[in-house]
């Protein structure tokens, strides 16, 4: 038992976290650009962004992972073949997460009042400065709970990468239990625990942080 736990943590967790990290980071970039396109872009840009969201949200994540590993390994010609499955996995999770993060950021950007944007422009700020100093700092804070939720989704979906041979947590379990079927139940128990440990504290922490942030600069007048 302790040995299995040790193997799982050391061998499986780094790959799972790597997929999660790059998937979320890539999704963050895509999501932010899509959200800005939908809120501030031309009508055509809005269509493109919306179409991207609709399509990517309609494809099962496992299909995406297959596409970017088995289907598109030639795209990643510059990547060491041994690394290709994991790169394919985080690209798949990243472009899908972008479709969801776009929605999170769009809602957050829209919830920053129009009046503040007008006030910033009236001060002489450029559109870019208005985003950097006024809109996005607020939008990111507003997006935190939704974003921590997305983190939980991505880290859990990283387990699909086991299917293309990435040695993340679930794949390690599969390998161990292939030789020791009697360890299947305890292994699965440990896997469940690991995912719980990596998701619950984060969603809880950011949930709390959001409450704190609202208390600090929320819209209701406390002092009147």
């Amino acid at each position: 038992m302790p040995t299995i736990l040790w193997i799982l943590l050391v061998r499986g967790v780094p790959d799972a976290l790597q997929i999660t990290f790059f998937g979320l980071a890539m999704g963050f970039g895509i999501g932010l650009i899509l959200a800005l396109m939908r809120v501030y872009g031309t009508e055509e840009m809005g269509w493109v962004a919306e179409a991207y969201e609709k399509v990517l949200r309609g494809i099962p994540v496992l299909v995406l992972i297959y596409i970017f590993t088995f289907g598109a390994s030639s795209i990643f010609w510059f990547v060491d073949p041994i690394q290709r499955p994991i790169v394919g996995a985080y690209v798949a999770l990243g472009i899908r997460s972008g479709a969801y993060q776009s929605q999170i950021f769009r809602g957050a950007i829209l919830s920053v009042s129009e009046g503040q944007v007008i006030a910033a422009r009236a001060l002489g700020m450029t559109g870019f400065q208005t985003q950097i100093y006024i809109v996005l700092p607020q939008a990111f804070r507003i997006a935190l709970p939704g974003w921590s939720n997305e983190y939980a989704v991505v880290i859990k979906d990283s387990s699909f990468a086991s299917d293309v041979g990435v040695f993340e947590i679930l794949k390690v379990v599969q390998n161990v239990t292939a030789n020791h079927p009697e360890l299947w139940l305890p292994s699965m128990g440990i896997v469940t625990l690991i995912y719980f440990v990596f998701t619950y504290p984060v969603t809880r922490y950011f949930g709390k942080k959001q409450k704190g942030a609202v208390g600090e600069f929320g819209r209701e007048v406390i002092w009147a």
Binding site: S113, G115, Q116, I118, A119, A120, R121, A122, L123, G124, M125, T126, I134, P137, Q138, R141, F217, G218, R219
Partner: peptide, 20 residues
């Protein structure tokens, strides 16, 4: 226009302060 706006102050009905 941004340089000109910097020289024209504006005060709003709903204040429009930056809440963060």
């Amino acid at each position: 226009i941004n340089k000109v706006r910097a020289r024209i102050g504006m005060v709003f009905q709903h204040f429009n302060l930056f809440t963060h």
